[in-house]
């Protein structure tokens, strides 16, 4: 329960802890549900405004965060049949496949929706 005698900022933080708890157990409360969890505070327009602001900010963060996710692309995303190409630098451990796979990356070769147009760089870090 949120203690009504606490300063407004602290009350909001307590509500957010409950919000995150609920979200972590797989049921993200809507704004109204979040406010409904605290009927005693429902007349506090300042608090509901701050909750709106928080949810907006979280949403914006999620949108930008998704952009980072897209550029980071982790394993398992349309990589099933794609083998990487080894770095030719002998001082580095061989991470992925060997040179014999180079043919897979010749211009014109297609990967799903993508087509290799040209090799843009080759060197110690591998072929881009």
């Amino acid at each position: 329960m949120v203690d009504k005698t606490l300063p407004a900022d602290e009350r909001l933080n307590q509500m957010l802890v409950e919000y995150f708890d609920a979200r972590d157990s797989g049921r993200t409360p809507s704004r109204d549900e979040l406010l409904a969890m605290h009927p005693d505070l429902s007349d506090d327009s300042d608090l509901s405004e701050q909750i709106d602001e928080f949810l907006d900010n979280q949403q914006l963060f999620d949108r930008f965060s998704e952009a980072l996710e897209v550029t980071a692309i982790s394993a398992g995303q349309d990589t099933a049949s794609v083998q990487g190409r080894a770095t030719p630098d002998p001082s580095r451990p061989t991470v992925l496949g060997g040179d014999h796979r180079a043919a897979m990356f010749e211009p014109g070769v297609r990967f799903g929706d993508y087509e290799i147009l040209e090799e843009i760089a080759r060197g110690g870090m591998g072929v881009v």
């Binding site: 952009a67 550029t71 982790s74 394993a75 794609v82 993508y114 087509e115």
Partner: peptide
């Protein structure tokens, strides 16, 4: 996970990353 990331970097044209500026 990083090996998977590298495999994708090797195979995915950079044109995919239109949202890079946001990131």
């Amino acid at each position: 996970r990083l090996e998977g990331w590298l495999a994708v970097e090797d195979s995915t044209p950079s044109q995919k990353f239109t949202r890079q500026e946001e990131a």
